[in-house]
């Protein structure tokens, strides 16, 4: 029996813009995925705890506030301490190219910037989960 891909979408910190993430959530739902949305203003701790409890395949963090280089190291540290280092992590939002390169080095599986078509997001997550294999 094939399982729907489970995704947790999170907005971290002082960032009140959630129109984009809701569109992504809707697109992933319509592609047959189970999408858990945390709501606005979450801390990295809350996001990682939620992702671990929900045992999601993909943790998607959207940032439009420029704090990615502070938030993602914290997220990876917390995933490690919670025994969830096999989780796929995807970043979304608006961020400079040099940060994108750094994030990928840090372990972010994919960075999906503004103007990424929904179908590309769906295809990317599907591919990442396939590549990971059974867990």
């Amino acid at each position: 029996m094939s399982q729907p891909i489970r995704v947790l979408l999170a907005k971290v910190g002082l960032d009140g813009h959630d129109r984009g993430i809701k569109i992504v959530a809707r697109a992933l739902r319509d592609a047959g995925m189970d999408v858990i949305y945390t709501g606005l203003h979450r801390s990295p701790e809350e996001v990682v705890i939620a992702a671990v409890q929900e045992d999601v395949d993909v943790l998607g963090v959207s940032l439009l506030s420029g704090v990615q280089m502070t938030v993602f190291p914290k997220i990876f540290e917390l995933l490690q301490t919670n025994g969830a280092d096999d989780m796929i992590v995807v970043a979304g939002g608006v961020m400079p190219d040099e940060d994108v390169a750094e994030l990928k080095k840090m372990g972010v599986n994919e960075v999906l910037l503004q103007d990424t078509p929904p179908q590309t997001i769906i295809d990317t997550l599907t591919r990442l989960v396939e590549e990971r294999g059974a867990r």
């Binding site: 729907p4 959530a25 809707r26 992933l28 739902r29 319509d30 592609a31 047959g32 995925m33 189970d34 999408v35 858990i36 949305y37 945390t38 709501g39 939620a50």
Partner: peptide, 12 residues
């Protein structure tokens, strides 16, 4: 969803 099988789980 009865169409795609997907869902938005918003209780959290």
């Amino acid at each position: 969803s009865p169409y795609s099988g997907g869902s938005i789980l918003g209780d959290r």
